[in-house]
Design a protein around this nucleic acid. Sequence first.
DNA 1: ATTCTCGCGTGACCTGCATCACGCAGAAAC
DNA 2: GTTTCTGCGTGATGCAGGTCACGCGAGAAT
Lengths: 240, 240
Amino acid sequence: MRAPYGLEIIESCVTCPHREERIFCNLSPEAVQALSTITSASAYPKGATLFMEGQAVRGVFIVCNGSVKLSTSSADGKTLIVRIADPGEVLGLAATVTGKQYELTADVIEPAQANFIARGDFLAFLEKYGEVALRVAQQMGEIYHAAVAEMRSIGLSHSAGEKLARFLLDWCAGHGSQKEESRATLTMTHEEIAQIIGASRETVTRLFTDFKKKRYLNVEGSALIIRNKSALEKLAGTAV
Amino acid sequence: MRAPYGLEIIESCVTCPHREERIFCNLSPEAVQALSTITSASAYPKGATLFMEGQAVRGVFIVCNGSVKLSTSSADGKTLIVRIADPGEVLGLAATVTGKQYELTADVIEPAQANFIARGDFLAFLEKYGEVALRVAQQMGEIYHAAVAEMRSIGLSHSAGEKLARFLLDWCAGHGSQKEESRATLTMTHEEIAQIIGASRETVTRLFTDFKKKRYLNVEGSALIIRNKSALEKLAGTAV
DNA sequence: ATTCTCGCGTGACCTGCATCACGCAGAAAC
DNA sequence: GTTTCTGCGTGATGCAGGTCACGCGAGAAT
């Protein structure tokens, strides 16, 4: 079907709009050239793992498309999903610049293509093209921002319903239409959602049926329809 | 006693070992010179606020000494302390590079001296001296690392005891001796500790008396003595 | 067609911790 | 001196949500 995989990926990644928007946009031609020599593209099937928490850092992965789940888990098997990376994000950035181990595990949940840059190459590149280092700092700032928001959500809320409402609103804000009655695609299991908001699978199920009963939302297959956004916002505590 | 405050601060900050260790070490002489022209030092009493969550970003604060509490709070007054910044840290970094609002509130808990650099100046400095941008990225990487650790602690633990044990161990690791029977200074109220580990004040009190009863630790004034480190580690879940 | 697996739906229970409601001591304010 | 505040200690109470246990339907595998 799509024969020479490697080539196709490089093509699609070079032209991929997301990457350009993020850290590597508006680079000088020579920087772009330098970048292309240290970048290697790969495709990853669903379920693949880019890196695992605790592993020695190898380098960064730039997600071209698909989606990747970033999580951390405890000794007893409990898992916390920190965030879902969308196309354009650079994974392993913090670990790569600090030289520590990867602090999270990156699992592919939608078949993904990603560019890899080895740590040594990446650092050398940053040192040579100081302009990019600032971009890197900016992206890390955004990631940190998201992390703080997540901490707020987990740490400051009183009920699981609050957290689920907030999660659903956030999700729709990024993946669907924005009106009072908005629709978005949500291909996640209750288990995964539970791991994001820090609750048990059963509670998520119960909350969903509860929300449906109260006409806050509807689920049709993988489509999530918010029917009463303000009610959810009220539940989520708006200002939080 | 210590008459010309401003001057003294600049002195102490220029020579302050912490700052040198962190982002601004080994700079070229001209970079140091440039830096000194955009830096302004101030002293802040206990209780002062460097910046508040939601404020438009003004710039970064480099903590020379004292200690600063970074927190976020919800509409209903609940507060989550994200971390305590020690000398050498640069506060407001993420917000400054991304240009968003401050995502946290910074309150002085021990009288502090800090250098301020306005956002415009700081960004111009980074652009001119690309070497520093990388340092900035590194520091942000470390902050992110800490944030992830915090999320793990809050999100993955089963009990409040687990979180308190982990907090106490972490605290001793950074502020005291490291043996089986270690001693550290802990000038925090139960309320504050509660806000760090995400529990109520009463639970913290109860846990402390519980730990004392079980001979895990002792409290003498502001001194915390860990008497049975391994027990606490076991409680904390070691690998987590 | 039959077995497995996976994700969802629900009921029954039981416990950890938030919350309310005090009392008490030391420090600071007057 | 008395009063006020702030931080700590503790009991009583209630409930949200974790955990266990099971059923069910839909794909996938054989």
